[in-house]
Design a protein around this nucleic acid. Sequence first.
DNA 1: ATGTAC
Length: 487
Amino acid sequence: MTTFDANGITLERVREYVWEIPQEDGMRAPARVLASEALLEEIKEDKTLEQIKNTTHLPGITDHAICMPDGHQGYGFPVGGVGALDAENGCISPGAVGYDINCGVRMMRTNLTYDDLKGHEEELVDSLFANIPSGLGGGGVVEAGVDTVDEILARGVDWALEHDYAVEDDLLHCEDEGMREGADPSKISQKAKDRGKNQIGSLGSGNHFLEVQRVTDVFDDAVGEAFGLSEDQIVVLIHCGSRGLGHQTCNDYLRKIEQQHQGLLNQLPDKELAAAPAGSQLAEDYYGAMNAAINFAWVNRQLIMHRTRQVFERVFDRSWEDMEMDLLYDVAHNIAKKETHTVGDGEEREVYVHRKGATRAFPAGHPDVPKAYRDVGQPIIIPGSMGAGSYVLRGGANSMDLTFGSTAHGAGRLMSRTQAKNEYWGGDVQQQLEEQDQIYVKAQSGATVAEEAPGVYKDVDEVVRVSDELGIGDKVARTFPVCNIKG
DNA sequence: ATGTAC
């Protein structure tokens, strides 16, 4: 048997790209890592493997915990982690959802080509930067009262539709039509609502960005056509989450769970995995709050998309409808969701699928895939770094068997933010991208550009190759950046 | 990711 020794943790090769940490001690299931050896060499460098192993101590862990090819260390549970926890006998863990609840990406198509945009790059990037709120702190497209925040939390993009920030077609091209069932605004603290009320329609900071891109390759013509993608076409990618509201909500529930469920906490190898037992009041409360924060993030991305349409209208002097600026799809990267899956012994079980830094990847025919894409599979959007371009994939035929219908979410970091700032200077990164690659970057903070320099990320091509080879998410198209704005 | 620490 081929093994891979990673600083004291031994992985057994199940087959190509599938590695297993066998069950031992307090583990309730094995852990799996889906990666090439090249990616595994990078993954082993931080606490990712220890964390995915720890995850298997959670009650109700089903089949195996899974680390995606872009996995890296996170709070308790790795970013790039998938864990299905039994919804009846298991638990739900805020750290396994992530601080930024429903951090995610959406892609909007246009009918513009790269030639239409050439010569307008600086005007476009300046106008996007001036009109789309970004950076830390407050200021959004909408400044809301508390009643409005409650409406957004309860109804998601349906609220945006009512207030003319969305059209019906936008809802039809979003998971859950932009409205999570079971959202309970009363389970979000006043403090979280106060943090969120002036951040509705704002990018935030860190790795969040808005990028205008051109399609460089379409690998699958039939699926590309179903997704409305063709070479040289301009698309817009929006990556952001639930800002201070989601962050505060995660924090609120971690503290509550630590206080009320110490018995379970003491059984876990890491306090950061704090979880509420399925069926407990706190599990129900967190699920209601998390679903509400998910709606908030969807509205956030919707308002940014709305404002982007307005900016394009001014720069190109045409209506957004005329430029066919339609939503391709919106994917969540940090969520837990009650789903029914066929588990190891062939039984159908309801599980809380935690996807943290992982994307749902439902295949063709799955009833939860929007009608527009049901015949080809769910679109998956995987952003690379700002120098490397991004991918569009479709849910693969093997995802339900291998990964509870999931795949990777991005390139994944290679080094910490602190380390990145020692290695790079923001101004130099910006200049190099513009001179070498004609990529126009505008940011609130030079430090953020250094933290997000292309060199701090893993090779997105390799991450996507593994997803494609495993048949969990199949390559459809590739894009390359033109303009990028960030916090 | 984040009113960039509690």
